[in-house]
Every structure is written in structure tokens, then in C-alpha cells.
């Protein structure tokens, strides 16, 4: 049953009680939370997801809930836990939904070791995948949302999961996380649903974009990487594009891999395969209007 088919009141009750079971990339997670912001955020942004029957195999149970009674009185906070483990410090209560999203990223990036896990946004067009890899603050997620707006299928804004056996990237298709000014930039494009803005996180203001229905429905379809782009937004910059060498790209991607050391030789092979297969560009831009058409042309194989 789709999340959207469950009445919001019933959804909140289920979340506060037995939990809601959702797909999360290559895993199935049970989410429990008594917090209304978590329930409204999930109900809205995961509307097209299937709420899975509870007799399925659940890989992880995650909770977002207030800590002990004492702390609740002193300062309203939330903690994220996964099967009883608490990977992060508590956050102020108004960041509950953002914390769930960060927590789910943690669940995938620390357990999906049957994949090479890259810190990259992944989009698909005509069966081929585009990976965007960059350090935080480079505009990766904003560009990802801009490309989704332009019709690319969303695989993930954060986690490039490269299967070790065939090199394809597995979709996650969870909400795209936007920060600060990019929230307005993406809102202004129209057509994408942006959730509630959560101010004052350590990353500034944060809001999440609901993944398009088509991306969610096709979350079973992996895609073969064809393009690897290192984007760099800087305000007012003119468009600059250069082809990046394979060896440099490889070394840079090692830095963007979560589990390179864990996987050793398997990671090397998977990454070498990916870099070999991809056309690689380094792109500097000051506006989405410059870079989105450029990537569209790259995908169509047209000369720039």
C-alpha cells in the first residue's frame, strides 16, 4: 500500500506504535517515531513509497524519539537510534525529520558493503547514470534537484551505490536535501515539492525535496554509469568545462568513497571499472541555467 493511501492520522499512529516499514535503498527499514514532525514529513515526502507488510524481512529498525524524561524537561531534544545503537549526539527537537534523513543515510553508508558506496548524487537518462561528486558546499544537491526538474530520473542526492558484481548503480530515490539559499532556488523553478524548512541546523536551514513519483516507482531499476562530473558552484562564475583525466578522477573518487578501505581490492576494481566507463568532466558554474543544458547535451552525446 502506498504511503499516500494511508490517512495521515492513521499513519502517525502507526509510526508511534508498531512502526512503518519502508524501502531504504538496498534495505528495508522499520521507522518508529512519536514525533508529529517526523510523521508529517514522511507522509508528505515519501507519499509514493510502498509501506511494506510487516511480515517482510526488516534489515534495520530506526527510531527518532525524545531522550530521557529528565532531558525532555531541560531541553526538547531528539535522538536517532538504529537497533538500539545511537550513532549521533541528540539534536534540538525541531530537527527531528532532518535527523531521520541523516540517520537513514548513515544506515545505508555504514552497512551496504555489498556495494562500493560513493558520496555522490546519481541521476539517470536513457538507461545511463550520471554521477555528481563534490565536497560539501559545492552545490551538488542543488544541481541534482535542478536536473530532476529538467526530467532526469533521481537515483540519489547523496549515495552512489555501485554494485560490486556488475558495476551498476542502485537507486535510493529518497528526498533530496537542500540547504540555505538553494531552497529558494529550487522552489523558484516550480514543479518540485519542497517540504518544511528546518532552520538553524549545523548545516544552516535545511529542506527536503519530494522525489518524483516516476523515480520512486522505478527504484528497482539500476543504471550503468556513463558520466562522472565534478561540479563546483561559485557565485557569478562563468561556465567552465574541462575533461578530467581518468587517473585524477580515480584518486578523487577514492576520497569520495565511504568504504574504499573496507572493500580493498574489490573497491579498486569497482571504481576502476566506473572511471573507465565514464566520460569525465570538471564543471564550474554560477547558475543552473548554464550547467543543466550542458549536462543534457553531454547525455545526448552532442559536442559542446
Amino acid at each position: 500500500m502506498k504511503v499516500s493511501a494511508i490517512a495521515s492520522r492513521r499513519f502517525a499512529d502507526q509510526l508511534a506504535g508498531p512502526g512503518v516499514v519502508l524501502p531504504c535503498g538496498p534495505f528495508v527499514v522499520r521507522v518508529k517515531s512519536p514525533i508529529s514532525q517526523v510523521s508529517s514529513g514522511l507522509h508528505r515526502l515519501y507519499a509514493d513509497f510502498d509501506a511494506i507488510e510487516s511480515d517482510a524481512f526488516v534489515d534495520f529498525e530506526v527510531r527518532v524519539e525524545p531522550p530521557s524524561v529528565l532531558r525532555r524537561i531541560l531541553r526538547p531534544q531528539v535522538i536517532f537510534s538504529c537497533d538500539g545503537r545511537i550513532p549521533f549526539k541528540p539534536l534540538p527537537r525541531h530537527q527531528a525529520f532532518a535527523m531521520l534523513e541523516w540517520g537513514l543515510n548513515w544506515v545505508v553508508s555504514t552497512h551496504a558493503h555489498d556495494h562500493l558506496i560513493l558520496h555522490a548524487a546519481v541521476l539517470e537518462r536513457d538507461g545511463s547514470a550520471l554521477l555528481l561528486a563534490a565536497d560539501p558546499g559545492s552545490g551538488k544537491s542543488t544541481l541534482c534537484a535542478g536536473l530532476v526538474h529538467a526530467g532526469w530520473r533521481l537515483l540519489s542526492d547523496e549515495l552512489g551505490l555501485v554494485r560490486l558484481d556488475d558495476g551498476r548503480v542502485v537507486p535510493v530515490a529518497r528526498p533530496i536535501s537542500l540547504k540555505n539559499r538553494s531552497i529558494e532556488v529550487i522552489r523558484a523553478l516550480g514543479g518540485l515539492e519542497v517540504g518544511e524548512v528546518c532552520p538553524d541546523t549545523t548545516k544552516g536551514a535545511v529542506a527536503h525535496v519530494r522525489p518524483p513519483r516516476d523515480s520512486v516507482l522505478r527504484r528497482g531499476e539500476p543504471a550503468m554509469p556513463a558520466w562522472l562530473v565534478f561540479p563546483k558552484y561559485s557565485e557569478g562564475a562563468a561556465l567552465e568545462v574541462e575533461t578530467e583525466g581518468k587517473a585524477h578522477a580515480f584518486m578523487e573518487m577514492v576520497r569520495h568513497a565511504f568504504n574504499y578501505a573496507f572493500l580493498g581490492g574489490d573497491a579498486f576494481d569497482a571504481l576502476a571499472g566506473l572511471v573507465d566507463r565514464c566520460e569525465i568532466r570538471r564543471v564550474r558554474y554560477g547558475h543552473l541555467d548554464q550547467v543543466v543544458p550542458l549536462l543534457d547535451r553531454l547525455a545526448r552525446g552532442e559536442p559542446r
Partner: peptide
């Protein structure tokens, strides 16, 4: 999950 654990312990 068992296979992942095995892969990690071998590595």
C-alpha cells in the same frame, strides 16, 4: 548480511 560480514572480516 552474513556474506557482507564475511567479506569485511576477510579484508
Amino acid at each position: 548480511h552474513l556474506d557482507i560480514a564475511r567479506r569485511l572480516s576477510q579484508r
